[in-house]
Computed example of a mutant assay.
Amino acid sequence: MNASASLISFLNVGRNYGTGGGLVQALAGVDLEIRQGEFIAITGPSGSGKSTAMNIIGCLDRPSSGQFRFLGINVGSLNRDQRALLRRNYIGFVFQGFNLLNRTTAIENVELPLIYRGMARSERRDRAAVALGRVGLAGREHHTPGELSGGQQQRVAIARAIVTDPLLLLADEPTGNLDTQRSHEIMELIAGLNADRGITVAMVTHEPDMAAYARRLIHFVDGHISSDSEQKAA
């Protein structure tokens, strides 16, 4: 993978919500480039625009102005189905709340994105087992979320996010529901996926010790990027 190739580009991106006196400017003309293979942490206070930026990167929202480009494609020109296809083929999501199906086994949870792709059962079962092995859960394939710890549940969620071999992993407060030890274990796993498999990682976090795992730190304030700096990863 060419680490210098542009994956994400924001070109004077603005995002407004509401109208008239209720208008809220969540992003105010943001310029940003994320290259393939990077690991970035996005930080900032509540209302700073970091979550809005993440939603746009994940093709869950669109700019009100400017352009958002993914692999050079102007995502604003795509229709709903095309954006869904882009998400399905190129992006994996990890959330604070795990978002697992409670009565479904770990391997069945991980298979879900492959079902949406129409993959045959035997192939998707094999790929899900490999993904669980990559996150250290070999032997736990048939455990339900209730039979797993919080850290293990997040590992299942990460396996589900990477089972499609995405170019981009978006992590929204991935350690927010975990204790300190489990948080560091999850961050080491995410950092390893970036370093060993070349998956680009963009993570929103409010925790400085979690942000320290990233090699680039982007801080939002009032809809603007207030700082963008390289850092030595933890």
Rank of each mutant, 00 (worst) to 15 (best):
M1R: 05
N2A: 03
A3I: 10
A3G: 02
S4A: 15
S6R: 07
L7S: 02
L11N: 11
N12I: 06
N12D: 14
Y17S: 06
T19Q: 10
T19H: 14
G20K: 15
A28E: 10
G29L: 05
V30R: 14
G37D: 11
F39T: 08
I40R: 01
I42Q: 02
T43Q: 08
S46K: 06
G47K: 08
N55P: 05
I57S: 00
S64L: 07
L71N: 14
L71P: 01
V75T: 14
S77F: 01
I91R: 02
F93N: 07
Q96R: 09
F98Q: 11
F98D: 01
L100K: 10
L101M: 15
R103M: 13
R103P: 02
T104K: 06
T105L: 00
I107E: 04
N109M: 10
L112W: 02
R125D: 01
V130K: 10
G133A: 05
A138W: 06
A138F: 12
H143G: 06
P145R: 09
S149H: 03
G150I: 13
Q152N: 03
Q154I: 12
R160W: 04
I162D: 03
L170E: 00
P174C: 10
G176A: 14
L178D: 12
T180K: 11
Q181C: 04
Q181P: 01
H184W: 03
H184D: 05
E185R: 08
M187H: 09
M187V: 15
E188W: 04
I190L: 13
N194L: 12
R197A: 09
V204E: 03
H206I: 08
P208I: 10
A211I: 07
A211E: 07
R216V: 12
I218A: 06
V221H: 09
V221T: 11
D222C: 11
H224V: 14
E230N: 12
A234Q: 09
